[in-house]
Design a protein around this nucleic acid. Structure first.
Lengths: 237, 237
DNA sequence: GTTTTTAAAAATCTCGAGAAAAAACGTTGA
DNA sequence: TCAACGTTTTTTCTCGAGATTTTTAAAAAC
């Protein structure tokens, strides 16, 4: 949490070292599913793909363990962290608890600047949603969605809470992407975000947390309802 | 959480690689305060102290970032994570929230085997406390205290909650040790543990979480009340 | 006396090669 | 046909050396 190299770091700071570059590229490929869950990460192969030395790549992989995107076992190398419906459910429930608590604190502590940031983040998200119709630049929307959630809880004074939430968000994003190819978004996410934003601005903590909790839970439900056989194709390690 | 190399792993599994060995040695030295908060960790020096190569040590340090015991910045190497009273307060509050929630779930889900484990862990802790009078094998007590808290919440089904708690516990232990030299334990910790154990066995979740919350908070209070100038000697980075 | 510039020293970051372990493969025997 | 064994191949783990960058210290300029 208190470092620039690992999880939860400011995404705007550009990488200054090769380790950092490889770390980001790998993280992206894992979250986007280009590296499948459970897949073996052979250093000898990957070092060529990412254009770095073996030691550098090992270090990047070690960093990814912080984010629970990579696992390692003894003398048997690295693997992409496996996925499961149970894990996603756990992530969802834990995230609901933590993020609602953080939101409550944020609403209580947030000042005018926070309100401004929130409004701005919501606006940018809305713009991305409008552009997105038909187009395929999902990345832009994903990034702005992340920032919107981040800004929502930004006035919460607990660094640790925010640190844990950044990890959980990242994990959830991974599951969301894995299921994306199977099921288009059936919900009116924009309406959910708008209601959430307005409740937060109105300082209605009960309402805001209720909406947020439901919002996060619905994402899980939509994945949960995907037929198991289709899901297992993706989840197979 | 889902790996054997990083935080929250089973402490009984012996290290099979030099990276793992160095990781544990470094972690121990940081938690015990032999490596001071904020201290620069020069790879060229440390590799000799720990008897490994530069690359190996770098990897171990990368692993310690997961535990937030080490921080790194760009091209300026590694440092021991700094400490502050604010940070400890955050750790404490976050831990109270998460650990109480986990305990509640554990009490609800725990079976007979869990009760047995809890009883056993409490017994071992008691024995260590009796032996400790006068002697100085703090390590034994620390380990058993950790296990007691771990067993308490072991029946909680959320892996992520337990993962986060293991990180927070480790952080708290570090602060506890830093303050240990300044202030002897004035509390009757044994009584607190016993009441906690009994409430858990009686499945009285409200009572158990109340005791646990107070138990964790008291540790913070005892550090908080240490005169600031004495504290800053230790906390100085 | 203070600040800026410049040069030397130290540390970080990176890579490729060699030893140890695990996995893959074919062979032998029942 | 199947299982057990030993060899070969692959992969991981580890180390030391070289290129950049940062830090330190001294010299020069204001």
């Amino acid at each position: 949490m208190a470092n620039n190299t690992s999880s939860g770091n400011s995404p705007t700071a550009e990488p200054k070292t090769l380790v950092e570059t490889a770390y980001r590229a790998l993280r992206r490929d894992i979250i986007e599913g280009h590296l499948a869950p459970g897949e073996k990460l052979r250093v000898e192969h990957l070092k060529d793909d990412y254009g770095v030395g073996a030691g550098t790549l090992r270090e990047a992989l070690s960093l990814l363990i912080s984010d629970a995107l990579v696992v390692s076992q003894g003398q048997r190398g690295f693997r992409v962290a496996p996925v499961s419906l149970e894990d996603f459910e756990d992530i969802t429930k834990t995230r609901v608890m933590l993020e609602c608590d953080a939101l409550r604190q944020s609403i209580a502590m947030g000042d005018d600047a926070w309100e401004g940031d929130l409004l701005a983040a919501f606006h940018r998200l809305t713009k991305a949603e409008e552009k997105r119709i038909g187009t395929d630049d999902r990345e832009e929307w994903e990034e702005r969605n992340r920032i919107f959630h981040e800004v929502l809880i930004s006035a919460c004074p607990s660094r640790w809470l925010k640190h844990f939430l950044s990890i959980l968000y990242q994990q959830a994003e991974r599951y969301r992407r894995l299921s994306l190819y199977l099921q288009p978004i059936p919900r009116d996410i924009h309406a959910e975000h708008e209601a959430l934003m307005q409740a937060a601005m109105a300082r209605d903590a009960d309402k805001a947390t209720a909406i947020l909790g439901e919002h996060i839970l619905l994402t899980f439900r939509s994945v949960e309802q995907i037929p198991k056989d289709q899901l297992n194709e993706k989840l197979a390690a």
